[in-house]
Amino acid sequence: MSHDYKSVQWTPFKKRFDLWMLGGIAMYLVGFISITYLTQPDGDSFTPIQALMRATGTLAFLLLTFILCIGPLARITDRFKPFLYNRRHLGVTTFLIALVHAALVVLWYHGFADINPLVSVFISNPRYDSLSGFPFEVLGVGALLIMFLMAATSHDFWNANLGPGFWKALHMGVYVAYALLIAHIALGAIQFEKSPIYVVLLASGGTIVAALHIATGLASFGGAKKPEQDGWLIVARTGEMEDGRAKIIKPQSGEAIAVFLDGDKISAVSNVCRHQGGPLGEGKIVDGCITCPWHGFQYRMEDGQSPPPFTEKIATYATRIVDGTIYVNPEPNAPGTPQAPSHIGATT
């Protein structure tokens, strides 16, 4: 969370994460190239460029598969929250690895053509009517262009200037990029690689990502609460609340509500972070503020405002406790409106 422009918003935690990430990438590349040479069948002769091409291509696919699993998995277990926090650095790194892969392919397979190598990518194979001979490189170019757009607009500068709604919609393009990448591999490597491991990796990656997103997408629309006679919604019994954490309540219309317990105080705010729409109810209270699990944006419980010098505001909701049961009024107050918390143990 930053109120002024910084080219990379590094924290000590993010720096450590990036070091681990770069170490892992280096190990993968060295390991892949070594195994390629050691297991090379007689008669085949890979050049170092070809081995690096395959290493970067498979790494970009595996990283993008992992990135797309982070969101749904973070909803299932807290263990993936640190990856959620560092997802942007992982995404930009994946784009750079894919770019190296593409550059190697263009130089190696098209660099010696009589025409412009970039033009050669699109016209050297005109078999658009064939499945096994389809010009799969074009699909990779499409995925790379979308990933470039994602990486180029990944900074909060663009989020602030484009608006969180448009920015989020734009960044859903990464799903289309993943589908193009799957098609790129299916019609490319799968058609000429002898090893079944490519089929297994592609099928399991695509199935896991699609299944996780469809399952969490369906779950996010389930469990809408029916209001009581006076229109308020039951949240939970006081004993069911965990200190510093929230229960997420879904009204039948409108946005989900995050009801937090901080000590003996119960407060409710919108579940949607102003930054990128992160699920605030999956975050926790840090230094007295509700903290978004995605990028650490913070809001005060009492009025839904970010602490100075930040200016973000979210809607607050009225709460009450009756006979040990917590209720929330699903009608939101205007963003940033002070709302007195309910106190556990106080007479209502």
């Binding site: 397979y109 098209h110 053509a113 050669s120 050297s124 194979n125 078999r127 064939s130 096994s132 001979g133 389809f134 010009p135 799969f136 490189e137 019609l187 490319g188 058609q191 000429f192 690689e193 002898k194």
Partner: peptide, 8 residues
């Protein structure tokens, strides 16, 4: 017998 038709 997989071969790479898609390459130039």
């Amino acid at each position: 017998a997989p071969i790479n038709h898609a390459l130039p």
